[in-house]
Design a binder for these strands. Structure first.
Lengths: 418, 418
DNA sequence: CTATTTAATTTGATTACCAAATTAAAATAC
DNA sequence: GTATTTTAATTTGGTAATCAAATTAAATAG
């Protein structure tokens, strides 16, 4: 069993295959000649590499369209190009999004088409490593069973969870859902499940999902902002996901937007999260709104319900509620602008599914952000909002698993024993 | 003439040589066996690659120490390793730091040893592209002449200047010293000088200098902060210098540390530079210090002299001056913490030579920074202060030129014409 | 002096890759 | 309808990069 996606050493002579597969993954369906142009390989080499990959069942040709079909209406003369794509049936992988609230599972084929999904509430907010491992395994087995699959059908499992994850080592350094630190979750799961496991930070997986399936398909430099409980971020530079020294980093939620500012859950002051997180908004609402309705923002009503009420207040024109959201939006714009000033990405993807965060994706906020970035270096980044559900986080985990399976597959090309 | 350092395409079969040279550059002197371990290449391959590079004059073996010398006192049994290093005499390159105030030139050999230097005041703050080109060429010719060299001795010139530089295309998108935009400075210089030219943003070159010659030699993830007129930054992730979409980015000086904060030269509000730049400090001093001495902070005294006086006031215990510096320090710590929260580098290098910025490198400031970064992800980054002069910026430019010359050299291995 | 240990090299493949020539499959010209 | 042109893909023949295994080199330990 080979460990996770790794770097390409100059020694391993698979860079050509990797480049070809990567091109096909990014822009399938694609013809050999385009692969040659995109990778810089010669057509001859592309022919030989693709022939090998087809033989091994990873790729397939797309049968040519019948004449006069819309697809080749604007046809040119010359031998028609034959498009290639990944062979969906080549591998089946699972992607799991684990959080303290819900655990979501998807099963996808090799091209990333979802063939099954399954979702269960997570029993506890915080668990031990062993409990977490057991729960993930049980969920996977149940999900497979309900959809008529078994673990032996899978070539890999990708798992995303919040916190600081050392993806290369497969160790969860810290997670809000774990009562322990430095948990070797990958190896624990791998030995229980008996197949390849890949773990990553959940925000990084959303980023991977955007890169593989979403708005990031065409961009080489982009960042993804996720808003759930906290504010997460994933960074892609030159087509590669950036990780900090310990797999940590990208803690946008705890960048400071105000000196000696609002108190954050992390104990520090002025964190972005302390201005845009729902607890921060409710805190403000509690402390200031003095009309009879204010009690509804207090415990023990659930955070979600109270947030919905606050949003409703703002929609009804309550000036205080509006002011609360407005400040949060301005702070968000400031935090975002800082990232842009540091990276100059071509694209920002604001990703999330909870409607109560719409105020952060408001045109005013985007405008604020645009007015806070350095102007000289070319056009400002494109800002796109992409709303989606937990399933897409799990899809990112699946994409990560596919990447891992491909690497395993390519590294597995050992020459025959003499 | 081949254009600047470029990416390694999978197609060009020089990755092994590049890896070997890179290892030697990072950790010379180094034995073949260590190169093999570091690169993942087999010892056989390292032997053959190094033999070729030695033949071509790029490398040389270090003659073994005589017995009982301190160097091999703790010797082990077995065949002794033979250390390798770059051959200094292989190439001579120039590095130039150009700014609106001073232009500094160094000439270094292939291992980065400085063999000559030359420095002249830049005649105008802002110039046209042609004037800039002419001035740089003249400076280079003069500098070479004074030290007994001629342009034909050089294999390349690296040039660093402030602003937004598209290093790949060799175009200065914008610079405070240029009256025009999108200046193709590399090609202009190249056709005038007749040798390979490489241009880059000056902060990126300091970063390169740290990586090649300085504190960054051992780190794979680090950032370099430079304080001159503005606040600059260079980012190295996984051993590679990060550039934004247009070669821009890393504008730490214009990240926002305060919503609707102090007015910055760039026209926006709350930029870090508007709190730590000398004009910002003097502005505060002017507006608030009402004692008779205050006039000395006004024009037309030069910025530098006025800054020195303000620093002296603080040293004498003037509470207002102290307060001005203290706030600047806190803001600096905040901006720095934000970068760390996003990148999680293992090392921060604070680089600069002007003593009046000592207050930013104060222990209090570092402490503030440490208290503003996310705690879970492992140890906080090491913070090192590295003071040096303009020469070292120029050394960075030279290091960049060496890199470019190496790439040219390796790409130039064309097979014989049939 | 012999055995051991480590570094480096040599030998003999194998593989990845490319340039150039060739074949394939279409549209267009006549 | 046949020849020509055009573009894609493949085949051919060869080169350069790389490796595994065996060998040689140069030291120390006993």
């Amino acid at each position: 069993m080979i460990n996770g996606p790794t770097e390409a050493l100059p020694g391993n002579r698979t860079s050509g295959k990797k480049a070809v597969l990567s091109t096909i993954r990014n822009s399938a369906p694609v013809a050999r000649i385009d692969i040659a142009n995109a990778t810089g390989l010669s057509p001859a080499t592309v022919t030989s590499i693709t022939a090998d990959l087809i033989l091994r069942g990873l790729l397939e040709e797309i049968p040519p369209e019948p004449a006069f079909s819309p697809a080749n209406a604007n046809t040119k003369r010359g031998r028609p190009r034959v498009n290639l794509q990944l062979r969906g049936a080549a591998h089946l992988v699972a992607g799991i999004k684990f959080s303290g609230k819900t655990t979501t599972l998807v099963i996808v084929n090799f091209v990333g088409t979802r063939v099954a999904e399954y979702s269960v509430p997570t029993p506890f907010d915080v668990q031990t490593a062993q409990q977490t491992c057991d729960f993930i395994c049980t969920t996977l087995w149940q999900g497979l069973d309900k959809n008529g699959y078994s673990i032996s059908d899978l070539s890999g499992v990708g798992i995303g969870l919040p916190g600081i994850v050392d993806a290369l080592e497969g160790i969860i350094r810290w997670s809000p859902t774990l009562s322990e630190r430095d948990v070797p979750l990958r190896d624990m799961l791998q030995s229980t499940l008996g197949i390849n496991v890949f773990v990553e930070n959940d925000a990084n997986l959303v980023t991977l999902a955007e890169q593989q399936f979403g708005l990031g398909k065409t961009a080489r430099n982009f960042i993804v902002i996720t808003i759930e409980q906290g504010v997460g971020m994933g960074i892609v530079i030159d087509g590669k996901l950036i990780r900090g020294t310990n797999g940590s980093g990208a803690e946008l939620g705890h960048t400071k937007v105000q000196l000696d500012g609002a108190l954050c859950r992390c104990g520090q002051r002025g964190c972005l999260e302390a201005y845009v997180g729902d607890y921060a908004l409710l805190r403000e609402a509690n402390s200031i709104m003095t009309n009879p309705k204010s009690e509804q923002f207090h415990h023990p009503t659930s955070t979600e319900i109270r947030m919905q009420k606050l949003v409703a207040e703002a929609r009804d024109g309550n000036l205080i509620a509006l002011s609360i959201f407005r400040r949060a939006g301005r702070m968000f714009a400031l935090g975002l602008a800082n990232v842009i000033n540091i990276f100059a990405p071509e694209l920002i993807i604001l990703s999330g599914d909870r409607m109560q965060y719409d105020f952060l994706y408001d045109a005013d906020v985007i405008e604020d952000m645009r007015n806070s970035i350095v102007q000289f270096g070319g056009p400002p980044p494109d800002v796109r909002v992409h709303k989606w559900s937990d399933h897409m986080w799990a899809m990112g985990a699946a994409a990560y698993a596919i990447e891992g399976v491909i690497n395993t597959e390519l590294q597995g090309v050992k020459k025959n024993v003499v």
